[in-house]
């Protein structure tokens, strides 16, 4: 099948943008008070994506490894910050833990994909592949990290009495914190497992849809999507486990003490 797609003009994009008026009308008629937020959200969607378009166009043209690395680093840092901002309980060092986990998990998985699964890509850091790949892994991993972090904080906060009782009876810090840690990792990993359960049945993933619209053979689009799902799943698992264990080490010191005072609700 020939890879062809229908080019969109600015007018056609404007037609689609007009649909946001429906949201505005709903907000007005039900007095939801969301009009201002909707307007800002719509504006940000346009401005952010247009800017990203310009940046990607330039990065794709330049094809320098250090430019690709810099863009990827910025994307990773934004994802790390976004993950923490979605959590209700924080502690000193949480941003560093989020950055380390998301960086290690997403970069390892992306590098694995570029060097093995997509080894035909040259150079291996070709931004056309590296940046969208990392972006998709980051977007999902940050969800896992946010959910895992949030759940760990909530579990430790609500189970403080039980954690301290176990410590009082002679539990090691790991024995006392194991259940909250397990729950947090579970919570972080469930969404991607759910996604894998329904992918292709309930919805077609964004990347696959994009490829189909761009005229890619459905068989190839499916293969790409399968690869992406597994990359996302392993990135999310590694990121969630990483951030939960790093948090555990911050909140339980080597003297087997639960440093609950470090946990601060936003």
């Amino acid at each position: 099948m020939k890879a062809t797609y229908v080019e969109l003009s600015n007018y056609e994009v404007a037609f689609a943008a007009a649909l946001i008026i429906i949201n505005g009308l709903i907000s007005l008629s039900l007095r939801l008070g969301l009009e201002r937020m909707l307007f800002i959200g719509a504006l940000r969607t346009i401005v952010q994506l247009v800017l990203v378009g310009f940046v990607l166009k330039w990065v794709f043209a330049v094809q320098q490894w250090y430019i690709v690395a810099a863009v990827m680093l910025v994307m990773t840092a934004i994802a790390a910050i976004a993950a923490v901002r979605r959590t209700g309980l924080v502690y000193p060092g949480v941003y560093l833990d989020s950055m380390l986990s998301i960086c290690a998990s997403c970069w390892i998985v992306s590098a694995f994909a570029l060097l093995t699964v997509m080894r035909q890509v040259t150079p291996w850091y070709d931004p056309q592949y590296a940046i969208p790949l990392l972006g998709m892994i980051l977007g999902n991993t940050l969800n896992g990290i946010a959910l895992g972090l949030n759940q760990l904080g909530e579990e430790l906060s609500s189970r403080r009495d039980r954690v301290e009782t176990l410590l009082s009876l002679g539990a090691t810090r790991w024995e006392a914190g194991r259940e909250p840690v397990r729950q947090a990792i579970r919570t972080g990993m469930i969404p991607i497992i759910n996604s894998m359960m329904v992918v292709g049945i309930v919805s077609l993933p964004g990347m696959m849809t994009g490829q189909l619209i761009a005229g890619v053979d459905p068989g190839q689009a499916v293969k790409y999507q399968i690869v992406i799902m597994f990359l996302i799943a392993s990135g999310t698992a590694m990121g969630t486990v990483g951030v939960v264990l790093l948090s555990f080490r911050r909140l339980f010191n080597p003297r087997h003490q639960f440093c609950y005072a470090k946990l601060q609700r936003r």
């Binding site: 009495d161 039980r162 301290e164 009782t165 410590l167 009082s168 009876l169 002679g170 539990a171 090691t172 087997h256």
Partner: peptide
């Protein structure tokens, strides 16, 4: 942990 096995602390509100 061994110290806490021999010297046990009990909270005001039991867990």
């Amino acid at each position: 942990p061994n110290f806490r096995r021999q010297a046990i602390y009990l909270r005001q509100r039991p867990a």
